[in-house]
Write a protein that binds this DNA or RNA. Sequence first.
DNA 1: CTGAAAGCGCTTACAG
DNA 2: CTGAAAGCGCTTACAG
Lengths: 336, 336
Amino acid sequence: MKITRNDVAKRAGVSNATVSYVLNGSGKIKEETAKRVWKAVKELDYHPDMIARSMSKNETMQLGIVSEDVANPFFGEIVKGFESAANNQNYFVNICTGIHKLDEYFDNFITRRIDGIFLTALPHKYSNEKLFKLVEHGVRVVVSGNVNVDYRRIASIENDHLEAMRDAMEYLFGLGHRHIAYLNGLGKEMSNDLRYVGYKKMVENLELPCGYDLLINGKYPYATGVTEGYEEAKKLMQLGNKFTAVICTNDMMAFGAMKALQENGLRIPQDVSVMGFDGIDLGQYWHPSLTTMATDKNAFGKKAFELLYASIKDETIGYYKNKLKLIERDSTGICR
Amino acid sequence: MKITRNDVAKRAGVSNATVSYVLNGSGKIKEETAKRVWKAVKELDYHPDMIARSMSKNETMQLGIVSEDVANPFFGEIVKGFESAANNQNYFVNICTGIHKLDEYFDNFITRRIDGIFLTALPHKYSNEKLFKLVEHGVRVVVSGNVNVDYRRIASIENDHLEAMRDAMEYLFGLGHRHIAYLNGLGKEMSNDLRYVGYKKMVENLELPCGYDLLINGKYPYATGVTEGYEEAKKLMQLGNKFTAVICTNDMMAFGAMKALQENGLRIPQDVSVMGFDGIDLGQYWHPSLTTMATDKNAFGKKAFELLYASIKDETIGYYKNKLKLIERDSTGICR
DNA sequence: CTGAAAGCGCTTACAG
DNA sequence: CTGAAAGCGCTTACAG
């Protein structure tokens, strides 16, 4: 038989309500009564029932995090930062990999009365309409990677990819590079990634002679794994245009790209410089180690939770723009 | 105002119970009545409340998966396989990173009435006693990586590391290697990892002249990231003993080890062969690509779910031993 | 084939 | 300072 509050109450010789007050620290209960209650709890090995609590409190203390790709260490680190901060406030977090249609997840969040979610999936996977529906049903949302959402209605946290791309391009420019390629993890039609936008802008600003000839788009809608980096680098080489540096949408792609370039006898960085985005740990062990625009992933996840928490507690719709930092390593060098 | 079953019932002109029967497909309801109910559901945009359902059904349809290190792609893939299979049976899965003390999580599982968990964390993080307590409280468990647990009481799934290590050693032996090092991700005191046991056994069986001189233990209790591989390889070199091949506890460690070896001017595989365990995708893009003992991660995760499901549905305590497969790539070669 | 009603285990205003 | 009781939104035997 399951031990309930009633059992505890009986054993402690008090009422149901008193047990609640003691356990939740609400109400003022005589210390001596409280002691009896705690004693009964221990003796019976009583575990409160959160389901029943959720029922009456109308909050579940559960949060969801929808992440595009848990197998990418980049997201893994963010998730850790988020979860750690959430646990400190007694939230339990559900991680959803987004393999299935997100619509199903969204319905699940409503049906399970999840208090809030952190949504890092790409916008093409869901409609903003669905997002608002979620909010209407009482699920708080913090979004990342969706430039089209109205940030006055939905809290959001973004990497400042525009600025980061500018820094990356200026860095390579400073090393003498004028033929800089960009391997885009997104399909052609997806113009909502600011790295893409930033790249095109910087090609103009720096008046690069290559123009857009070195821009390789990926699979629609989105694929940024090692494999894609490898394949896009192959495509770039097949084009036959001159290039001396390659920027990739993320580090994983950069790993794949390096592999392809090396297989073709190109030395890094002597013949071609390569850089990525994200700053995952692995980059420093790659051969050669990877220059990258790094995000402080732990802080990012923590900040995401804080925005969500603020949204739950006092309806605050926050917005946070995260700055990336250049980490210079061995995969980039002076243009010869 | 929240829309409930009562609202639907009223609108459809039926009772509360009838709505339940229709939505759950239980009971025999006239088709024409059912239609009215579904119509009302649509019109009101009604979402059933799982919390209330859990309350009366005494099942939450939530599963937990406790994974040592979500940032390692190896676990990420397993998680995906598990989650995918679970979703097909309408389960929702919570992924727990195990950053905090697992005891807290365990209490959480009870308190939240999680139907079952897949526990892949290392045994030193929890006591078997705690595990049994979980089961007593109605939480089903499938465990992995705990050789000490009684597999007649707790369902489990294990990689056949003993056999895999034998295959790995015989493979290297066949290439002519007689001085084979093992970089162990676990601390000295942890003898419950079968790779470690298998290594020592094979050193004996093959009568390797190196004996145990090339066995490097890791940090207590457990650390198998790139960094550890790097550091242990350094230690190995400092020892000054002759070695021509290196086996690592997992692929991530192998990456770090390769880096350290290369930094010391050793060529892979010309001067030293390196292999890992796991078979993560990244291995094929490394430079040189990594020879490894691979697990079918998706299948592993799926199987884990099936064991858990069987345990929930009909109290079956299953056991499954997973076979690894040698993937030969460029990081290993004939001993010169 | 359908409805009235008890029950799941908590919380919390309201009395006292 | 403590208790009796209503309520949270479902499910499901039991009647009819």
